[in-house]
Design a protein around this nucleic acid. Sequence first.
RNA 1: CGGGGCGUGGCGCAGUCCGGCUAGCGCGCUUGCUUUGGGAGCAAGAGGCCGUAGGUUCGAAUCCUAUCGCCCCGACCA
Length: 479
Amino acid sequence: MAEDKLTTRAEDFSEWYNQLVIKSDLADYAPVRGCMVVKPYGWALWENITSWLDKEFKATGHVNAAFPTLIPMSFFEKEKDHVEGFAPELAVVTHGGGVELEEKLAVRPTSETIIGHMYSKWVKSWRDLPILIVQWGSVLRWELRTKLFLRTAEFYWHEGHTAHSSAEEAKEEMYRILDIYERFCLEEAALPIIKGTKSETERFAGAHTTTSIEAMMWDKRALQSGTSHYFSTNFAKAFEIQFLNKDNVLQYAETTSWAISSRIIGAMIMVHGDDQGLVLPPRLAPVQAVLVPIYKNDAEKAKVMEVADRIFMELKAAGIRLKMDDRDNVSSGFKFNDWEMRGVPVRVEIGPKDVEKGSVALARRDKPGREGKTFVPQAGLDSAVSGLLVEIQDSLLKRATEYRDANIHDPKDYEELKKVVQDGWAFSYWCESRECETKVKEDAKATTRNIPFNQPETEGTCIVCGKPSKRKVYFAKSY
RNA sequence: CGGGGCGUGGCGCAGUCCGGCUAGCGCGCUUGCUUUGGGAGCAAGAGGCCGUAGGUUCGAAUCCUAUCGCCCCGACCA
């Protein structure tokens, strides 16, 4: 069988990514422009992501609901910035049942409008608030240039939409969600991220404040990996979400929305993946460990499978997500490469020699090839594997954090800033003016990512114009 | 939307400039035998109205016209 090697990251990072998504069996191109088919392996990964988030949302008082895919076009006209932001990328249904529709319907690009409309019906009294609803589903945006997981026309996500009786409460909600996103990234996805506030130009269409989590990919470009928005009363005014407060005064609700999409899978691919393929964090991997029995003939097979089956049961009982690769039509070498391509964190190899010695070969995916392989006793393998999964999870986060920190620079002047953002991030004082932001974009093709929270009380001067500045911002090229 | 590339068995491609006989190749697939500790070997098979629609011609994957779609780069992108 001929080798079927992946383009390396150094050769062509974009090509590496495209090939990897297909070869690792996460997704495939759909016969529809810009759309993807998420294959069972990719969907299993997505389910592990969604189930953790769903549990956290429920634990913080949120409930799930479903709103229509189609939204009356007129709804988009109600919020000025929102329509400007989304009109260019709407797909519109013009006919139904063979008849031209009187009012055209947009396929939802996001659901603030239709949910805002419903909230106006549901909210009459301060007693009706807060409303904390999450919708799981997909949305459609007519993107001009797509890439599997990172930017597809249709993508999967959850969108949280909440309404509150005070600005303070709504802002708290925005930050609470961003904290959940941060914990998800650090604890589950092993993605080091930076929490902060978006600049005015990078803000969500119609938002008062947009906060985000930003991650650095292997090629050092930034990926906005999740957002949490505070709308103040912008959408409440557009959709007339009003209630009588405790003082019997009619007032507008304060709303938020927030999302993490299937794009987060793209982030995991581009942060953890290597030239052998995908590397999945153990906590989210659909298959945490794979067993590969090795034998030459039926006599060996019988002996090996007896041990392999026993180990399989033991590891299964320990709660490890497990797969036995007992395919007879491919060689062991093929299987090793195959599971490495799919990013399975731990591989357990059991051959005739291991049966005799009472050992197994244990290979960890974060150290590819033979260097990640050690021989360990069969006795106590369940705790050895469990321990290794934890170790891999930690080492992925550590490695990604070190990589990110090593590639964030503090340029001395504007000339240096232009240089460093070509292959890294810059963390610099910025006067928060649109002019300076635009200048950086034009000169260096880098944008502001976010202004991180909890900055020290120091002052400096804007890296672009030299005016006094209190806060630093990240500049980077982004996806 | 601008620039570039490409549509030929499931996948990747050759053939197209310069029209010609039964449309090839690699991988994968099926069957059999030998293999299996880092991407196995041999043998025999199955599988195609050459993206679509018109046209030119004795004859079109190949030339002409139109059309649909995909990929890459750029612009755009909560």
